[in-house]
Nucleic acid binder design. Structure first.
Length: 844
RNA sequence: GCCGAGGUGGCGAAACCGGCAGACGCGCGAGCCUCAAAAGCUCGUGAGGGCAACCUCAUGAGAGUUCGAUUCUCUCCCUCGGCACCA
């Protein structure tokens, strides 16, 4: 016999929806409507899903965590915004189209519907009135609008560059989408490809994106660290070497800027190295004996993917270009090399090589017999680099450095940098690892980039009144590569908005991370039609008080969203610096230690679990099995524990109902497997039960505040046992009070069952709208406490003593305890440590 | 290499501010119920020793601070995650 979850769950889902209990209500000026709420609003958001069709355990976990918090905040009287939507553009829809011949829009609609139903089956407290889908023109027109604002500010630009190309997806990728050299979506090795593409100048925000990480005190440290790494601030000096005059290079006197974080080692620069893609390489080798050889080398290296280059590891290849450069600090002439270990995309694409004090330069110099000159003498060891097995990168005394000789190298960076600035041979700069964000995708199912190319006017933005540029439907998607829109004359051919002459539309679409970089703002006013969102609504709801999602977005989505927020602030639409005040990154759901995936065949389908146990059991188990940030090992057996617990709660409450509010000895109820016998109250059981009840309220409330759902549930399990025990022993009318508290506290976790029980207990109001129970501190006080008695730090006895006993009383009692006397062996104690109401330690 | 998170029973995990290590749950064992099984219920369950009351050992390893350390400090080992020829 088990409780009828399959009748209960749909019923309450319907009732919540009909009553609109989870609708977010913005304040209307001049009404008293606000009295229902606390001062504060609460915006709770979980990362919206890509509508792939079925929901998986990862979704269940993410959204259950969010739902428990949302229901808890609702109960606390906050004005809650808890929306849901769909990140509906993207490649899978297109791949389905290619494979099954379905229109991506139709496929997506179907998936969204399925997904929405799946979410509803779990009883989540969303305000479905605010649902958005990014593939809706009413949504993506604002992608286009934001893009054009960026274009207007010079933050969206078109440039040719060697970009990341995924040969399998047949599209370009952002740096953030390249995971260890592979495509984030299909794991194919990414290749460099020279293309003209649209970029967003996220690098213009590198400084604030880094600095404002300091404001995110409620973000997990690892996410902050990942973003800090990704942005990669590096303080140093740009030094200007010049190409030697009189060399065969025509335009001699040309500068080669190099970037270094170690200006203190400038006197030890014995050669200069250019990246293979460096524009000066070609000039330097022209007409030289090494011309053909170098050109061949450069071509070979440039063809290799970044990953391949790194995989070669320590082996560094390079060639002399035939050219020389002049070190600006001492006029020394040094050879210019080209090598694979210098990257065009970092710094200036050229370095000064200091083999004595940089490990990479050291290995390269050894390999190619280049001079190694010590300019920082190590405090100990052989000063002759011939005996070294590696470069000395530490601090020491400066040598071979002209007027800086014999100074300690600590502070050398600052001294030499200042001197170079004075002599105008270099300047202090900051370099960033963060690259601009490539957003062009040669795919169909995305937001059209609202740009028109005119042979007369050039790059022309689509005027505001012509937005949105609608993504046409009747497109043939072949998967053969190239933008599918490019094959559609009716789309491509247009007129220039400026000169009215024939022109062509941009045929690439936007990366879908564009769509998700501001959706949290759209939820504040999803029907807004004159702007992406109503700035007043955004000011009211934003920032998101609690954001919940997977760690896999630590740099992608979470960095882009921060960038968008700052941009929208700068154009006056927002008044905040950061979009997400608190972030919770939930762990993955694993089976047999591995991520669930179709290819591994270890997927547990949430719908199957719901059919067998109901949504409440699934929710409860997924919260109980592990703390939210840890990975969770799915266990088909362990879920029975949650199932049993809910059934026991059901039985307990039903017994209490059957017994009436004042418990008497009831007849065992027909069909119940475990009738609970209630007796007449005895002694102070009533007070005891009341104490347990208030202790449970305190624990569960505290655990919910700090996201410790697993221990909150264990506290509820203990509470249930305590009520049952108490009821069986007779504890008076308070059994009903205790049971009601149990049902109430369990509500955020198992909302359907608890609503049903609440109603059966005779309440007309739904639990969903009811305010959270409070505990009374006075009721928590116990008359007696168990005192732990230690001898030399080891537990030897336990004593039950009145709460609040004085130190003297405790000492006397402890010394009288036979278990203690046994260990004292007649000797007086050396010392006694007393922790009131807790412990006494006797030191012998 | 750099950055981050971790290491506690057979398993998932608890332990507030330094104060009973292993709550709660799974699994396992015994029993009840049953013609039998499933379900359900009751009790037990870190390791070792003892008939027992009890005793010894135990939170990755080693040291330190302390009356007392899973918790604080240092050294080391291992696992996971991110970045990585970043000048």
């Amino acid at each position: 016999m088990s409780y009828p979850f399959n009748e209960i769950e749909p019923k309450w889902q319907r009732r919540w929806e009909e009553a609109g209990v989870f609708r977010a209500i913005s304040p209307v000026p001049g009404t008293a409507e606000g009295t229902r709420y606390r001062e504060r609003e609460y915006y709770l958001l979980e990362m919206f899903p890509y509508p792939s069709g079925r929901i998986h355990m990862g979704h269940v976990r993410n959204y259950t965590i969010g739902d428990v918090l949302a229901r808890f905040r609702f109960a606390q009287g906050y004005r809650v915004l808890h929306p849901m939507g769909f990140d509906a553009f993207g490649q899978p829809a297109e791949n389905a189209a290619i494979k099954q011949g379905v229109d991506p829009a139709t496929w997506t609609d179907r998936c969204v519907q399925q997904m929405r139903e799946g979410l509803k089956r779990l009883g989540f407290s969303y305000d479905w009135n605010r649902e958005v889908a990014t593939c809706d023109p009413a949504y993506y027109r604002w992608n286009q609008w934001i893009f054009l604002k960026m274009f207007e500010k010079g933050l969206a630009y078109r440039a040719g560059a060697a970009v990341n190309w995924c040969p399998s997806c047949k599209t370009t990728l952002a740096n953030e989408e390249v995971i260890q050299g592979n495509c984030w979506r299909c794991s194919t090795a990414v290749e460099p490809k020279e293309l003209e593409q649209w970029f967003l100048k996220i690098s213009a925000y590198a400084e604030p994106l880094l600095a404002d990480l300091g404001k995110l005190s409620d973000w997990p440290e690892r996410v902050i660290a990942m973003q800090r790494n990704w942005i990669g601030r590096s303080e140093g000096v740009e030094i200007w070497f010049t190409v030697q005059a009189g060399s065969p290079v025509q335009d001699s006197g040309k500068r080669i800027p190099v970037f270094t974080t170690r200006p203190d080692t400038i006197f030890g620069a014995t050669y200069v190295v250019l990246a293979c893609e460096h524009p000066l390489v070609e000039e330097l080798i022209r007409g030289k004996p090494q011309e053909a050889q170098v050109r061949q080398f450069v071509e070979r290296v440039s063809r290799r993917s970044k990953q391949d280059r790194a995989a070669e590891g320590v082996k560094k290849e390079g060639l002399f270009t035939g050219g020389y450069a002049i070190n600006p600090v001492n006029g020394e002439v040094v050879p210019i090399w080209v090598a694979d270990y210098v990257l065009m995309e970092y710094g200036t694409g050229a370095i000064m090589a200091v083999p004595a004090h940089d490990q990479r330069d050291f290995l390269f110099a050894r390999e190619h017999k280049l001079p190694i000159r010590v300019v920082i003498r190590p405090p100990e060891g052989d000063p002759d680099p011939k005996s070294w097995s590696e470069a000395f990168e530490g601090e020491g005394t400066q040598v071979n450095s002209a007027q800086f000789d014999e100074l300690p190298s600590t502070g050398g960076k600052r001294r030499i940098a200042a001197w170079m600035e004075e002599k105008k041979t270099g300047k202090r700069t900051i370099h960033w690892r963060l690259r601009d964000w490539l957003i062009s995708r040669q795919r169909y199912w995305g937001t059209p980039i609202p740009i028109i190319y005119c042979s007369a006017c050039g790059v022309v933005p689509v005027p505001d009144d012509q937005l949105p540029v609608i993504l046409p439907k009747e497109v043939s998607i072949t998967g053969e590569g190239g933008s599918p829109l490019g094959k559609m004359k009716s789309f491509v051919e247009t007129t220039c908005p400026r000169c009215r002459k024939p022109a062509r539309r941009e045929t690439d679409t936007m990366a879908t991370f564009f769509d998700s970089s501001w959706y949290f703002l759209r939820f504040c006013s999803p029907k807004e039609s004159t702007l992406p969102f109503d700035p007043k609504e955004a000011e009211f709801w934003m920032p998101v008080d609690q954001y919940i999602g997977g760690i896999e977005h630590a740099i992608l989505h979470l960095l882009y969203s921060r960038f968008f927020t700052k941009f929208l602030r700068d154009i006056g639409l927002l008044k905040l610096d950061e979009p997400f005040a608190r972030l919770l990154t939930q762990g993955m759901v694993l089976k047999e230690g591995e991520v669930m995936s179709k290819s591994k065949g270890n997927v547990v389908d949430p719908d199957g679990v719901i059919q067998r146990y109901g949504a409440d059991t699934l929710r409860l188990f997924i919260l109980f099995a592990a703390p939210p940030e840890d990975s969770l090992e799915w266990n088909d057996n362990a879920i029975d524990g949650s199932w049993r617990f809910l059934n026991r709660v059901w039985e307990l409450v039903e017994s209490v109902i059957a017994a009436g509010s004042v418990p008497v000895r009831p007849e065992p109820v027909e069909g119940r497997t475990r009738p609970i016998t209630l007796r007449e109250p005895q002694g102070d059981r009533t007070a005891q039960l009341r104490r347990v009840t208030h202790a449970a309220i305190k624990r569960v409330t505290g655990d919910l505040e700090s996201f410790k759902f697993n221990t909150a549930i264990s506290a509820l399990m203990e509470f249930r046992s305590a009520i049952e025990k108490s009821a069986a022993q007779g504890s008076g009318p308070d059994v009903r009070g205790a049971v009601e508290a149990l049902v109430h506290l369990l509500n955020p976790f198992a909302p359907h069952m608890t609503e049903e029980l609440w109603a059966r207990l005779g309440h007309r109001e739904m639990l969903a709208g009811k305010s959270w129970p409070a505990y009374e501190a006075a009721l928590l006080e116990e008359k007696e406490v168990t005192l732990v008695v230690q001898v030399n730090g080891k537990v030897r006895s336990r004593l039950t003593v009145p709460a609040g006993s004085s130190s003297e009383d405790l000492k006397a009692k402890v010394l009288a305890d036979p278990a203690v006397r046994k260990w004292l062996d007649g000797k007086p104690p050396k010392q006694m440590v007393v922790v009131p109401n807790r412990l006494v330690n006797v030191v012998v």
